[in-house]
Design a binder for these strands. Structure first.
Lengths: 151, 151
DNA sequence: TTTAAATTCATACTTTGGTATGAATGGTTT
DNA sequence: AAACCATTCATACCAAAGTATGAATTTAAA
């Protein structure tokens, strides 16, 4: 399902890129027809591709990183499931939040990273505090490390 | 201080943009001299500005991602290797607060432990955050451990 | 002795963290 | 189909964390 989202992003990007190229082609013809200076066309190309770059960076730095994070987490969870008995019933998403939490991230940053809202992060946080038997995020990180749930 | 960093970023970006424009200008002359098709030049412009856009988006992104965190850590580690082998100028009391902080204690608990008031603990906290170059206590603990200031 | 740093505390303020409650959705299991 | 779980999000509220500013005291260094 997440791969599907990723494919949707790819398709959206490809379509946008195609539309942009078509637009630039027609623009080039118009520039040639009315004999505008070439610099204008080049400037338009520069601005458009810079915007495209910004957009691509924003789109692709969120979702694929999320994939990476999740894959890392799932690997860790798989490992811990293999070697030790349990992860105290922590769900996938709670593991995601816990790992980012252990990097010193705020709830806001975690929400951005996982592309969810802050209340969602808080919900996962409270749940994993309960499961770890702690009251604060610093204690959660300590506890999780001592239980080797996270490295 | 944050505004200073912001200005440094702006200056860096402006210089890069200027260099890029100069490079494109010379490239344009060469293209004209050797009579390459204009499409090549436009393509180069497009690619370069797209990369510039991606780079700008990563540099100026509002949300700190993993890369930012990692760079912050490596920078701080480099600094510590540079200037001092010891505790970055942390005072005794700041070390006390830091150690109790690393045990997952709240400011209230630390204040009780050290027999001082909560504002005092907050004062020490803010000072050591500044010295460690972090914004939160979770990051302070991570940073202090990576610098081996605390076990 | 003046200077500077360290420690302490206060006050006020903003931001972040955490709890409680409820609800909608989608997938899985029985 | 019904029950359950994971995930998501909202709202509201309270607690904790963090910032900014200022100030008093002590101690050590210049």
């Amino acid at each position: 399902m997440k791969k599907f989202i990723f494919n949707k992003e790819i398709i959206l990007m490809s379509v946008s890129l195609s539309l942009l190229l078509i637009f630039l082609n027609t623009l080039q013809y118009r520039v040639m027809l009315f004999d505008y200076p070439m610099e204008i066309f080049i400037g338009v190309v520069a601005v458009l591709f810079m915007l495209l770059g910004i957009w691509m960076a924003n789109k692709l730095s969120l979702k694929p990183n999320l994939q990476n994070v999740e894959s890392v987490n799932s690997n860790l969870q798989a490992d811990s499931n293999f070697e030790s008995t349990d992860t105290l019933g922590l769900t996938q998403r709670e593991m995601d939040v816990l790992n980012l939490m252990a990097l010193g991230m705020s709830n806001h940053e975690i929400a951005d990273k996982l592309c969810v809202s802050i209340p969602t992060v808080k919900s996962h946080s409270s749940n994993l505090y309960e499961k770890l038997g702690v009251k604060r995020r610093t204690q959660a990180v300590i506890q999780a490390k001592s239980l080797k749930i996270i490295p």
